[in-house]
Design a protein around this nucleic acid. Structure first.
Length: 247
DNA sequence: CTCCGGAGGA
DNA sequence: TCCTCCGGAG
């Protein structure tokens, strides 16, 4: 449950669909995930993007293996990589708690429903007011509606089951656009991680040659990843994924 | 090329 | 509140 929700952060369900069962096959329990090497976790994560999520997920698994599952919403949110949405989704779907799970779909649907852009505390307040006792069903319905009908650009109000009660379908504020991927640090960081998953140890020059990216960009990515503790330096200029020892 | 998508740190 | 983290699909 926690695994699937973290995978679904910033990643469309279609891409999670085939990786989630494989990930659970590799790491069937939190204990197995906690004890795995970061290289193995990264290998299972390959292609999902935002690789820090994988490291944080394993850190969360280690904490759970040691301390047990947090009981409530606040405890869940204190886990690394678990924010307001993921904590609420786990609390509602796995623990049966009556809390709204507010992802980007829910934010858009509720904004249109109420006729004004909602975010932060206002969104939370509105959602709590709208939330019925059957919280899990409501969360599922709102998110599905946003994904399938109440879409960003051209909402299909003609086949929306609740269009009659909606205030203003035109309400939509597009998320801020991200910079180009080509030429970005993200691209180089991704190349470094991808290489280390298959080679386990490498130099900047090797990664540059294999990826086709300039060595100075790979070097910058290595510095950045080291600062994030996502890779470690081993020899004179060799790097690897972290050894698993410390969290 | 554009679009899509939560967490966390500054 | 703003910015950065990835990668695949259309």
């Amino acid at each position: 449950m926690l695994v699937s929700e973290v995978m679904l952060q910033q990643t469309q369900a279609a891409r999670v669909a085939d990786r989630y069962p494989r990930f659970l096959g590799d790491f069937p329990t939190v204990e197995v995930l906690a004890a795995a090497t970061p290289a193995a976790v990264m290998a299972a994560w390959q292609g999902l993007g935002y690789n820090r999520r994988a490291f944080r997920l394993q850190e969360a698994a280690r904490r759970i293996a040691t301390d047990g599952w947090p009981a409530g919403l606040e405890g869940l949110e204190a886990l690394p990589g678990v924010g307001p949405y993921t904590a609420a989704a786990v609390a509602c779907f796995a623990l049966g708690m009556g809390v709204p799970a507010l992802d980007t779909n829910a934010r858009r649907v509720l904004s249109r429903w109420h006729g004004r852009p909602l975010s932060g505390a206002a969104l939370s307040t509105a959602a709590h007011q709208d939330l019925p006792p059957a919280a899990a069903d409501w969360n599922q319905a709102v998110m599905d509606l946003g994904a399938a009908v109440c879409t960003p650009r051209q909402p299909a109000c003609d086949r929306c089951p609740v269009a009659a009660w909606c205030t203003d379908p035109s309400v939509y504020e597009p998320p801020r656009r991200q910079g180009r991927f080509e030429g970005s640090l993200r691209e180089a960081r991704g190349a470094v991680i991808r290489h280390l998953v298959s080679q386990s140890s490498a130099t900047v020059e090797e990664i540059a040659e294999r990826s086709g990216l300039p060595a100075d960009r790979i070097g910058g990515a290595v510095d950045s990843l080291r600062a994030d503790r996502m890779i470690t330096a081993t020899g004179s200029d060799a790097i690897t994924l972290p050894d698993g020892g410390s969290a």
